[in-house]
Amino acid sequence: MSDEYENNITVTELDTASQGTGADEVVIAVSPAFGTKIKKSIVDIGLDKILKELCAGIEEEGLKYRFVKVYNSTDLALIASQGSKLSGSGICVGLQSRGTTVIHQRDLVPLDNLELFPQSPLYDETIYRKIGKNAAKYAKGENPEPVEILNDFMVPSKYLVKSTLLHFKEGEMMDKSRKAVNVEITF
């Protein structure tokens, strides 16, 4: 597995993330190795492209986004749950480097969610756009029709080994004692 994907994603750490105040804000919470050790998804989609679509989806609905990086867990549920508590609207899109995504809401327990996209190898740019859009709609208090569910039962048999190795990489960047930070991500 090579990380030499030719993209210009850069992650700059800012201050410790605090709770946003704007109700028009959706937090995009990313995993420890996102954009640094890992720059492309499990099916080699550049993480820059994924973010571009998520952000565009949120902006289309007239809302703002904020990037937060979670270091104390590699578990998507915990990443997104922290992000939703920091989000001004209470809505967060959680994103692991391999492309697994969830829409989370502040008042839900970590393992609950609004919409979950667990089969990362199946998602293309179009789906991430829709996820961004739906997250923004939840933030506006709407009850949108969920993004279509994709399911390919052969995905794990092909990708679980790779997914496990990517998860190890996330784990190497994990720091249990570290609080979530605001990050600037350029792409």
Partner: peptide, 10 residues
């Protein structure tokens, strides 16, 4: 059918 299996296929 497995395409409907939300446990990701049996």
């Amino acid at each position: 059918p497995n395409l409907d299996n939300v446990f990701a296929g049996s």
